[in-house]
Design a binder for these strands. Structure first.
Lengths: 225, 225
DNA sequence: GTCAATTCTATAAAGATTTTATAATGAATC
DNA sequence: GATTCATTATAAAATCTTTATAGAATTGAC
C-alpha cells in the first residue's frame, strides 16, 4: 500500500520537526508549510490525506484558513492549538475540523486521533474486492480484471475507475471528478476527462461504443453502473 | 426533519440527567441505559444515531463493550471517561471510538463533538429521495427512475422536474417556471416550456396523452402531482 | 346553450449550438 | 526508449432553439 500523506501547517519549526519525526517513524509521508498561504497552496497542488493545522498562524486568522480549506478539501483536518478555551474548540469543530487537539499535545494520543481520522473514510476500502458484471477490482492488490483477465490500467485510469466504483449509481459532475483526480485548478479541463474516460472504456467495456458501465450524462458528467 | 437519537450508557444518574437535559434542549432525542448489558440491548433493538459510552461501567470492561458494539454498530460512539491517561485514550480510539472525552467534560465542547460526529456520515446516509407513484427522484445521485428503471433526462428536463417536484400540488405559472429554469429575460418564451413539458411527459407519464403528473392549467401554467 | 372566432396548447421537425468521442501529436516522466 | 500524460483538432452525437401546424380550450355574441 502507498503511504498516507499528512500535511503539517505550523509556524513553529520545532513543532514541525517533532511532528515530522513522529509521523514518519509511523509510516506516514509528511509535507510541511510554515504559514497559511503556503499551506493552502500545497494542499491544493497536492492534496494530502490529512492536514494538521495550527490555528495560530502569523499570516492569517486560523478559522479563516479552516473555512477556506473546507470549501473544497474533503479529507480530515485536525486543529492543533494552544487555545484550550471551550469557545475556540466549539468554533473549530463547528467550522469543519475533524478534531481539535491542544498544545502541548501527547504524541501517542495525537497519533491515535490521526489514525481515527484516516480510518473514517476507509469503510469503503474494506471491501477489498469490488465487482461489477465483467469487471473485478482488487483494491489491495491494485489489480483490475475484465472477465478474469488482468488488464493494465495507468495510474490515472485506475484512480478514475476507483472513484467511479466507489460512487456507483451516482452522477459525478465533470468538475467533481476533475477536482478529485487532477486536483483543484483543473475543474475546467473537461477534455482531459473525456480522453481518459475514452481509454478506460476501451479497457473495461465489453462494447466501448455502447458503454454499459460508464454512462455519460450529457451536460453534467458521468455515472458508473 | 426527524430528531436524531442519542443513547447514553452511564451508571451515574446525575451525569445521565445532566446529559439528558443538555441534549434534549439541543433538539436530540435521548435514550438511557445504566449498565453495559442494558445499553447493548437497547442499541441493538433500536439503533441510535450516536452512543455516549461511559468506559467505566460496573458490569463489564469498557473496552469490551466498545468492541462488542463495534462488531455491528456503524454510527458514532463517543467515549466518556474519567481516565485521562494517554494509554486509555489511545486504546479507546484504536478500538473504534469516534472520539474520547474526559470527565468532567465541558458541555458545549461535548455538544460540538457530538455535532461533528453526527455530521460525518450525513452525506452518505441521507439519500434524499422523492417519490411520486411510478417515478422516483434521487437528488444526491441525480437519477430519476420510472418504475425502477433509470431514465435519462437532459439538464433542462431534470431541472424542470425538480422544480415541479419541489412544488408538488401548486400551480406554477409559465412566467415563474421560465424565470426559474431559463432565467430572467425568458419569461415570454412560453413555447420553450411547452416543448420541454412535452418531452418530460413522454419520459415520466405512463400515458403521455393523458398526463397524471404534469397537469396543464390552461392559460396559467402547470401543476405537478 | 350554441357556434364561430380567438386564444392557448401539443407535437413534430428543422436548424443552431453545445457537448462528447476519438485520433493524433508533442511533452513529460520513469 | 517506452509509457503515460497533456493538448489540440475534428467529426459525431446530443441537446436546445425556433418555426410550423394541428388540435383543444376558452370566450363572447347571438
Amino acid at each position: 500500500m502507498t503511504k498516507e500523506e499528512i500535511l503539517i501547517i505550523d509556524d513553529e519549526p520545532q513543532i514541525r520537526k517533532l511532528l515530522e519525526i513522529n509521523l514518519e517513524s509511523n509510516g506516514y509521508k509528511v509535507t510541511q508549510a510554515s504559514d497559511a498561504s503556503m499551506g493552502i497552496k500545497l494542499a491544493a497542488s497536492h492534496p494530502p490525506d490529512l492536514i494538521l493545522l495550527d490555528i495560530g498562524l502569523p499570516d492569517k486568522n486560523g478559522l479563516e484558513v479552516l473555512k477556506e480549506l473546507r470549501a473544497w478539501f474533503n479529507h480530515s483536518i485536525i486543529i492543533l492549538s494552544v487555545m484550550d478555551d471551550e469557545e475556540s474548540i466549539v468554533q473549530g469543530l463547528d467550522n469543519g475540523a475533524s478534531d481539535y487537539v491542544t498544545k502541548p499535545f501527547r504524541a501517542n494520543e495525537l497519533l491515535a486521533r490521526i489514525r481515527s481520522c484516516l480510518n473514517r473514510n476507509k469503510t469503503v476500502d474494506h471491501h477489498t474486492a469490488l465487482k461489477f458484471d465483467n469487471i473485478q477490482i482488487d483494491l489491495i492488490a491494485r489489480t483490475v480484471k475484465n472477465n478474469y483477465e488482468i488488464i493494465k490500467l495507468t495510474t490515472t485510469e485506475y484512480k478514475l475507475l476507483i472513484l467511479f466504483a466507489q460512487n456507483q449509481g451516482r452522477v459525478l459532475t465533470h468538475q467533481y471528478i476533475l477536482k478529485e483526480i487532477w486536483g483543484v485548478g483543473y475543474q475546467n479541463d473537461t477534455q482531459y476527462l473525456r480522453v481518459f474516460v475514452g481509454t478506460l472504456r476501451k479497457k473495461i467495456e465489453l462494447n466501448p461504443n455502447k458503454p454499459t458501465h460508464i454512462i455519460t450524462e450529457s451536460g453534467v458528467g458521468y455515472r458508473f453502473n
